[in-house]
């Protein structure tokens, strides 16, 4: 069974609003990684909200079409149970941190999933170590630098250990070393069978992905294996995606 199936997906933020996503169709198998790119404002984040089930549960949003994750229709799942299917790291790190310490922030997800304390401890320590932020464990997430916040947000989602990971420009604020580290982590997760969808402007950081999707004003401009597309400089330049 496919991990992600999207059929005729369209989205507007309010009933008479413009179509932000237009009639999208695509599929992904388990363990594959998809990179989404496109100009600012083309609908990448909106697509992430749709895939994680958030957009469908918005009060004013109008979603048409169908999204199946592991065969389950996300429209029919309760918002909170979606956390078992999909983990999402938002583009703005400030809007997803709410705990008094980094440790609590990361433990929050596993606690909700009713893991025993010993396992929670192990997961917290593991993701902190994985992302190289063990020294921040006591810090207040509000009092971190921009890049540190993004790493904590990513750690908090990794601790949930969901089968599908959606990452909305998580690398945008990271320094070179952290970008490399996150890329390595993603590679390892992919090899372990996780499905990953990542929004990214700098394609050279995610060359190990399988598919590339180029969005243009809410529509799928192109979709295919990543390598030939990143090699097609002419196409990327025409889409204004490289200088």
């Amino acid at each position: 069974m496919e991990a992600v199936i999207v059929e005729d997906l369209s989205y507007r933020y309010w009933p008479e609003g413009p179509l932000v996503l237009k009639n999208m169709n695509f599929r992904m198998a388990r363990g594959e990684m998809l990179v989404i790119t496109g100009l600012s404002g083309c609908g990448k984040s909106t697509l992430c909200y749709c895939l994680s089930g958030i957009a469908g549960h918005r009060r004013d949003g109008v979603m048409q079409g169908q999204i199946l994750l592991d065969g389950k229709d996300i429209q029919k799942l309760r918002a909170a149970s979606l956390a078992l299917e999909v983990g999402i790291v938002f583009q703005d790190p400030d809007s997803q941190l709410f705990s008094p310490s980094v440790e609590d922030e990361i433990a929050f997800g596993p606690e909700n999933l009713c893991l025993p304390p010993g396992d929670i401890r192990a997961r917290v320590d593991e993701v902190l170590d994985l992302l190289g932020i063990s020294s921040l464990i006591e810090a207040n997430p509000y009092h971190l630098s921009g890049g540190e916040k993004h790493l904590v947000a990513l750690a908090a989602v990794l601790a949930l250990d969901p089968p599908l990971l959606i990452l909305d420009e998580v690398m945008s604020q990271l320094d070179q070393q952290a970008v490399q580290r996150v890329a390595d982590v993603l590679k390892r997760l992919k090899d372990a069978g996780k499905t990953i969808i990542a929004v990214e402007h700098r394609l050279e950081t995610v060359t190990f992905a399988d598919h590339l999707m180029v969005l243009e004003r809410g529509a799928l401009a192109r979709w295919g294996p990543i390598e030939p597309m990143t090699a097609d400089r002419e196409f990327l330049a025409a889409q204004h995606l490289i200088d």
Binding site: S52, I54, A79, A80, S81, L82, A83, L84, G87, I88, F90, S95, Q96, L97, F98, E103, D104, A107, F108, G109, P110, E111, N112, L113, C114, L115, P116, P117, I120, R121, V124, A156, V157, L160
Partner: peptide, 18 residues
């Protein structure tokens, strides 16, 4: 939304690290 997307209220019960 962020809390819910991390499983808040997924179950009627939850556990605690400490």
């Amino acid at each position: 939304v962020a809390m819910e997307s991390r499983g808040f209220r997924a179950y009627p019960r939850r556990t605690y690290l400490r």
